[in-house]
């Protein structure tokens, strides 16, 4: 009997997720023993047609990392979905939209204009812009167009499971792989990590909180043994699913939220907004004017960028609108 087939794919992302797979180290041999890797563009030489030639559902599991940023990402997502029994969104970008999802705060034209014409290093004097059709040496090449908005994987195809993280932490991947090999996958739609938040795994001392002003981690009097948030450092830990063993706070860096919202949260960004604004004190609040309240919160800069760093495309509002 032939081994079950698995596939890995890299869509709109930085490639860190691929490295995370490699991080499995020797455990990857267990995977290779148990499965036949039929598709993994970054590691083995396979073509899209190899996948097209498979029967529907012939791939047992597909690990899909990266967001859906261009038409190619979308096309291959649909193809892999069709050919796979189990579709797993691997990493923050495919799970939530990820950091590239912040691109939804700009229109496609703004993004292209900035990247190709306005960055200090573009050096594009003729103002050339990418196009979707290119004729070279008499050959016409079609290139995938940038989509108008960034989507998470489940916006374009049905997703069975999610492995969160940027990149997914090793214990989470190991847990997922073990569950897969032992046939112990939970109910469809589950995020394959813990249910509790990062705080639950963070061993910094937490007290009853009241935050003054938001501060930055490089302020010199930060006590590494105490909760960063209660020292005024915006930390997404309380609004973020655990499983990472609080890797960032343990290294005295605030959590940025890559593991996404915990099960009952629905919306990671606004949950953290409400938590942090509930804590920030305004002096003599009864008499405070709107300006004073605004001033107290001014230290929270770029709120959407911070609170939705990984989850904008899967948030309630998803993107920037144009309200004239």
């Amino acid at each position: 009997m032939s081994k079950p087939k698995i596939a890995f794919y890299w869509a709109g992302s930085c490639g860190g997720c691929e490295v995370a797979v490699v991080d499995l180290g020797e455990k990857i041999y267990d995977v290779v023993d148990a499965f036949d890797i039929v598709f993994w563009p970054v590691a083995i030489d396979t073509k899209y047609d190899d996948i097209r030639n498979l029967e529907d559902g012939e791939i047992e599991v597909c690990f899909f990392n990266g967001c859906i940023r261009n038409e190619e990402n979308e096309e291959i997502a649909r193809l892999l979905r069709q050919k796979s029994k189990v579709m797993i969104a691997f990493g923050s970008c495919s799970h939530l939209g990820g950091i590239p999802g912040l691109g939804n705060l700009s229109s496609r034209d703004e993004t292209l204009d900035y990247v190709y014409r306005k960055t200090p290093v573009s050096g594009n004097e003729g103002g050339t812009m990418p196009c979707t059709t290119c004729v070279k040496d008499g050959n016409t090449i079609d290139l995938p167009a940038l989509r108008t908005e960034v989507s998470a994987l489940n916006d374009v195809v049905d997703v069975d499971y999610y492995i969160p993280g940027c990149p997914p932490p090793l214990p989470v991947i190991e847990g997922a792989v073990a569950a897969l090999m032992n046939g112990e996958l939970p109910r469809k739609g589950a995020v394959l990590s813990t249910e509790k938040t990062v705080c639950d795994e963070c061993d910094k001392e937490k007290r009853k909180k009241m935050v003054g002003k938001a501060r930055r981690i490089y302020d010199d009097d930060v006590d590494p043994s105490r909760c960063l948030l209660e020292q005024g450092i915006p930390c997404m830990g309380p609004a973020t699913r655990g499983g990472c063993e609080a890797a960032c706070p343990s290294a005295n860096m605030p959590c940025t939220g890559c593991m996404g919202p915990p099960p009952a949260s629905q919306e990671q960004g606004s949950r953290m907004v409400t938590a942090i604004t509930s804590l920030i004190g305004v002096e003599n609040e009864r008499e405070a004017t709107a300006e004073e309240v605004a001033e107290a919160l001014a230290s929270l800069r770029d709120p959407v960028g911070f609170f939705y760093m990984y989850s904008l495309p899967t948030s309630f509002l998803k993107r920037r609108y144009n309200d004239e």
């Binding site: 606004s270 907004v273 609040e285 709120p303 960028g305 920037r320 309200d323």
Partner: peptide, 23 residues
């Protein structure tokens, strides 16, 4: 003090709505 919490939350929400391109 519930209303104070709301005032702070909504102040930040307004800034965020602006970032979302919503008046």
């Amino acid at each position: 003090s519930g209303n104070y919490k709301t005032r702070r939350r909504m102040e930040l929400m307004r800034r965020m709505l602006e970032q979302f391109g919503i008046n």
